[in-house]
Amino acid sequence: MAKSHKPIIWGLFAGGGMVSAFVTPVMILITGLAVPFHLISREAMSYDRVHAFASNPIGKLLLFVVIFLPAWHAAHRLRITAHDFGLRQDIPIAVVLYVTAAVGTIMTISALLKM
């Protein structure tokens, strides 16, 4: 059988879709809405506390998984969605989306490794 890169992309799409389904809503709450709406205190999201979380190996791994998988899920699904909206330049669209996801992944890894 001919080798294909499809299973990798598909695995990232499915795994990312599942991780996103479970954690993205609560992540949006925590990082974007809980502090302004006083659901959690501003101190809970203080530099010292969040930095300590990102410095811990388990915290690092958790942050990596909940960021990189949804990024690849979104990139792959947006590629298909672009087609559904009548954009038929699949290759340039795929390149832009996957490169964006790759840059985001590399930024996340390098930021997490510095903490």
């Binding site: 992540m27 949804p70 985001g104 996340t108 930021a111």
Partner: peptide, 21 residues
């Protein structure tokens, strides 16, 4: 189209991690 918003939020999250660093 939920993927567009998951993607945009993920970009915000990456920005957050970057600023934390």
């Amino acid at each position: 189209v939920t993927s567009l918003f998951i993607g945009l939020y993920t970009a915000v999250a990456i920005d957050g991690v970057w600023r934390l660093q």
